[in-house]
């Protein structure tokens, strides 16, 4: 790279400088002349890592789902078959899938209902110091330890815990008992019922709904809402016809998190809930004690397919364009 100095006529200063000296300088020049090389070198380490460690293992998993387990020996047979996927449609396994998806839908809807007022208030009314406080108020629970949050609910929902104490103090124990004696949502106690599982799921994943929703609401121009009011729409109508449609992309973005996280979780239903399995628990059980890795792998494909379908729907509804 020892380009000769070209000197402008009549002036002493070189227009094109000499190449840099030293190995580092030459390397720097090389990168400047070949930006593609620098790009390639920059991308190689992260792509190697993600490609080998992550995508490689994902493929290893996918591959295993096409194997099957020999019923007699309990060993994995390494030949291509769709038999394992067929097993997913057995009533017991189908039950697990339906239960998990239903729970994910319920959790997503309730999260949206609880998150909306917080996001709306933070986006439209909170200002200055209050805005920062709201932001931290959502961020801290979002980032605080997942297990600690689950543990806190174990304390709350325990028979001798604060919630039962509260119901007793308010003389409402009969109400709780009536709820627990209901068929599906009930159970022996709150920490051994779908109600308990549901509450903890909503608590743990709801913060993921607030921030995208708030971002979407902040982009709704206040003038639109004023215009709607001026044209005589009562608040309810303004909400239905103006605010809600404009906030929908944020709502869908948030629901992707709550839905996906509920689909894949296996710790919450294990600690607070009934003995009936969710997808995550089924995966865990099949790969662990049962040693049926093909079925576990096939089970993990279910959330991926459901999420793929969900994202496709979200895209069709324009959630990504508006974000």
């Amino acid at each position: 790279m020892s380009a000769a100095s070209v000197t402008a006529a009549g002036a002493g200063a070189p227009i094109i400088m000499d190449g840099r000296r030293g190995p580092l300088g030459r390397l720097s020049d090389l990168f400047w002349r070949n930006p593609r090389l620098l790009l390639f070198l920059m991308l190689t380490p992260p792509m190697l890592w993600l490609g080998i460690v992550y995508v490689g293992s994902l493929f290893a998993l996918l591959l295993q789902s096409f194997f099957s387990i020999d019923e007699f020996s309990g060993l994995i047979r390494y030949e291509f078959t769709l038999k394992t996927y067929g097993e997913l449609f057995q009533p017991a396994n189908l039950d697990v899938i339906v239960r998990t998806v239903t729970m994910a839908v319920a959790v997503t809807l309730s999260s949206a209902v609880i998150a909306f007022p917080i996001a709306y208030y933070a986006a439209r009314y909170a200002q200055g110091k209050w805005k920062a406080l709201f932001y931290l108020g959502v961020m801290l629970p979002l980032w605080s330890s997942y297990l600690v949050k689950v543990y806190a609910w174990k304390l709350i929902l325990a028979k001798e815990g604060i919630l039962n104490w509260l119901f007793a103090k308010l003389h409402l124990t009969w109400l709780l008992d009536a709820w627990l004696s209901l068929p599906i949502v009930g159970g022996n106690s709150l920490s051994f019922s779908y109600t308990g599982t549901f509450i903890v799921f909503v608590y743990v994943w709801m913060p993921f709904m607030i921030l995208p929703l708030q971002a979407a609401l902040e982009r709704v121009p206040a003038t639109l809402i004023e215009a709607s009011n001026d044209l005589g729409a009562p608040p309810g109508q303004t909400f239905r016809r103006v605010i809600f449609p404009l906030a929908l992309p944020g709502l869908i973005a948030g629901s992707i998190f709550t839905f996906s996280l509920t689909l894949g979780d296996y710790i919450i239903p294990q600690i607070i809930g009934t003995s009936r399995l969710f997808i995550g628990q089924a995966v865990y059980a099949h790969q662990g004690t049962a040693g049926n890795i093909p079925l576990a792998a096939a089970f993990t494909v279910v959330p991926v397919v459901v999420m793929g379908f969900y994202l496709w729907m979200a895209k069709r509804m324009g959630a990504f364009n508006a974000l």
Binding site: Y54, S57, L61, L261, G264, V283, A296, T300, P303, M307
Partner: peptide, 14 residues
């Protein structure tokens, strides 16, 4: 973006 259990079990099988 994918549930953590998928990352976990794929790493383990790898």
């Amino acid at each position: 973006a994918l549930p953590g259990i998928i990352t976990g079990i794929s790493l383990r099988s790898a």
